[in-house]
Design a protein around this nucleic acid. Structure first.
Length: 360
DNA sequence: GCTTCCCGCCATACA
DNA sequence: TGTATGGCGGGAAGC
């Protein structure tokens, strides 16, 4: 008889082997977040609830809400609590950002610190400049209090300034390097630049997934760059895709994310083939390897975050997962016999556990 | 080898 | 002093 410790260990190994960065991206997470809350009766957003429903750590929810707040989709109401504003709020927020950006571009920084986009005055803005040199001259010489320094580096503000660049700049395409230079007070420091670019990648991924911008290339240099698509595009997507019941790959509460499956140095390329990876063009035309088992939970016998939900919600989720597990369509096909039997054992344990829960 | 960006540590803010 | 927030950069995935 296989001990539970061994099962747990093997299941964790499977989770490690099926790691896919694309499925865990901030873009996918924000799509699922929007799909979860983009509905008429959505009002309050609890951070713990969101993290539980989406099966991610709380830290990631902070990233999402900060970026969404920067364009008015959500607004902070208090500790642990945001309110849903919706896509209807985006055009107004973008207009305000554009006006602010134009004012700042004209050098009128006297008014911008009292301006706000949302959140009833909880956030204040620092000015930004399109020209890195000007920004450096104006900011690096002044002494900024630490709390303001922190604010200046916030994802919320960086996100707003990134949007302003598109709204107020004459350039159609903006690279993340140029944005980082423009938005960084010390643009000469390569370490700070790298950090800023990392954050801009986060923001760009979120906005890309929302159709607010699109990734493209500068024709001459082939350098990756982003093009503004605008609020029309986001509104269109908001009423279609984010209302859809069909989730993207990261499914609400069904997937273990980074709770255990830390990225491993282990080269899984050979193992991946063994445990059910196949050429994606067997299903469509893309020439990439896709994890066949990526839709499934390889973790403890309860949905992630389930402990924080009430029983009815948890039970509903269990029914969903149960039906998925039973469905031949969603059952992973393992080439490796050991893994097949392990999955069988796992499924049996799940069924027993669920039956017991049902009796109770 | 370079680009992209997930992940979680830990400093700071706040109650 | 405990909890919430979120900046930051290491390092792994992806190309």
């Amino acid at each position: 008889m296989m001990s539970s410790a061994i099962v747990t260990h093997d299941v964790e190994s499977l989770a490690l082997q099926s790691y896919s960065r694309k499925e865990k991206s901030l873009g996918v997470l924000v799509s699922n977040f929007l799909r979860l809350y983009n509905r008429d009766d959505a009002d309050q957003i609890g951070l713990d609830d969101a993290a539980g429903q989406l099966g991610v750590e709380r830290r990631r929810i902070y990233d999402v809400v900060n970026i969404l707040e920067s364009i008015g989709i959500v607004a902070r109401r208090g500790k642990n609590m945001y309110s849903w504003k919706g896509f209807g709020e985006v055009p107004r927020s973008l207009n305000e950002l554009k006006e602010e950006g134009m004012r700042e571009r004209l050098g009128d920084s006297s008014t911008n610190n009292s301006d706000k986009i949302s959140n009833d005055g909880e956030r204040e803005e620092e000015s930004f400049s399109f020209t890195p040199d000007d920004q450096e001259n104006s900011s690096s010489s002044k002494i900024v209090p630490f709390s303001d320094q922190r604010k200046e580096k916030s994802l919320w503000l960086l996100s707003q300034n990134f949007v302003k660049m598109f709204l107020c700049s004459d350039d159609d395409l903006i690279t993340l390097d140029s944005a980082a230079k423009a938005l960084l007070s010390d643009s000469q420091d390569p370490v700070h630049m790298r950090t800023k670019v990392r954050r801009l990648y986060d923001i760009a991924n979120v906005f890309s997934s929302m159709n607010l911008i699109e990734k493209t290339h500068i024709p001459e240099t082939k350098k990756p760059a982003y093009r503004w698509l605008g609020s029309d595009s986001i509104a269109e997507k908001g009423t279609s895709l984010f209302n859809s019941d069909e989730p993207k790959k990261r499914v609400f509460g069904r997937e273990i994310t980074n709770l255990r499956a830390k990225r491993s140095k282990t080269d899984c390329s050979s193992n991946c083939k063994q445990i059910g990876y196949k050429k994606h063009d067997e299903e469509n035309t893309e020439q990439e390897l896709k994890p066949v088992a990526s839709k499934y939970v390889f973790g403890p016998f309860s949905p992630t975050g389930g402990a924080k939900r009430n029983d009815n919600v948890g039970k509903g989720r269990l029914l969903e997962i149960e039906s998925l597990a039973a469905s031949a369509t969603y059952r992973p096909q393992y080439c490796n016999q050991e893994i097949t039997s392990l999955f069988g054992h796992y499924t049996e344990a799940w069924k027993k556990w669920f039956a017991e829960l049902d009796r109770k």
